[in-house]
């Protein structure tokens, strides 16, 4: 149902803004298939040489693997800690829920550079620079607020009487949680995990400060953009654009579905 007539001008404006948001990203795609050394547009001839140079260069491949490892560990930690915290926040007395949510989502308001610097100084003092686990934990702390927000929204939609019914029917608290509370939360938790993965996978500054000997993928891209500019970055970017879009499409769909099916 059309609630209010929106003028055609507003529609044109909307699509112009969509172009502004998406067009620069799409431009990267054709450049990655260019055969030219320069970031020239339009590309002169089609080639896959920049994809070859990405997949054949151990520096790029290693960087990707490190980022992947760190992101998976960080995702598991932040999703677990964030989901548990969200459950606690929603079960807590009303007057505590507000302060707890503020506390758990605190890192969102702190600039990454500030966190990076703090973690860096901490790592120097404890001799833990260049440590992948340290980086994964720092990323987990940054990603956790998003997990709390997404899973909290889903938990609020759950009908608590189902878990209570399970308890009445003789299930212990853990079993009631497993059979009644957890299943409807799975889509939201998976969505949160995907977001958390990319928070870590895309993060540059904390990694830049913490890692010296080894490089994550954003660090490699960063170094390339600053020094010898070549379309390998465009090939990597294209791969990332495709993967991120697909993953985010899945995550958003799951999040929406969770919100819809759980609504009473």
């Amino acid at each position: 149902m059309r609630v209010m007539q929106t003028s055609r001008m507003l529609a044109v404006y909307f699509w112009a803004m969509v172009v502004y948001l998406i067009f620069p990203i799409l431009i990267v795609l054709p450049v990655s298939f260019s055969d030219n050394e320069l970031l020239r547009f339009p590309p002169t001839a089609f080639s896959l040489r920049w994809y070859q140079s990405y997949f054949n260069d151990p520096v790029w491949v290693d960087a990707t693997l490190i980022s992947f490892r760190v992101a998976v560990v960080s995702m598991v930690i932040s999703t677990t800690a964030g989901t548990l915290a969200a459950l606690a926040i929603n079960a807590a007395p009303k007057r505590l829920a507000g302060p707890l949510t503020y506390g758990a989502t605190l890192p969102i308001v702190i600039p990454h550079i500030f966190i990076a610097l703090g973690v860096f100084i901490l790592a120097i003092r404890s001799g833990l620079t260049d440590n992948e686990m340290m980086l994964a934990l720092a990323h987990a702390a940054v990603a956790m607020p998003f997990v709390v927000l997404i899973t909290s929204a889903a938990i609020r939609q759950i009908d608590p009487t189902i878990a209570r019914a399970a308890r009445v029917l003789g299930a212990g608290p853990l079993r009631a949680f497993r059979v009644a509370t957890l299943p409807p939360l799975i889509p939201a938790i998976v969505a949160a995990a995907i977001f958390a993965f990319f928070v870590s996978f895309d993060e540059l500054i904390i990694a830049q400060f913490l890692m010296k000997g080894s490089e994550t993928l954003p660090m490699r891209i960063w170094a390339d953009l600053r020094l010898d500019f070549n379309p390998t970055v465009a090939a990597v970017s294209t791969l990332l654009i495709v993967v991120t879009s697909l993953a985010m499409g899945v995550a958003e769909t799951l999040r929406r579905r969770a919100a819809r099916t759980l609504a009473p």
């Binding site: 895309d202 540059l204 970055v233």
Partner: peptide
């Protein structure tokens, strides 16, 4: 979706995209 997909795209890549658009040979 059209708004959310670019929102979750890496800032590094979105910045790189502007180099491709606005560069000397862009």
């Amino acid at each position: 979706f059209l708004i959310l997909i670019p929102m979750w795209m890496s800032v590094l890549i979105r910045t790189f995209a502007w180099i491709v658009v606005l560069g000397r040979e862009g």
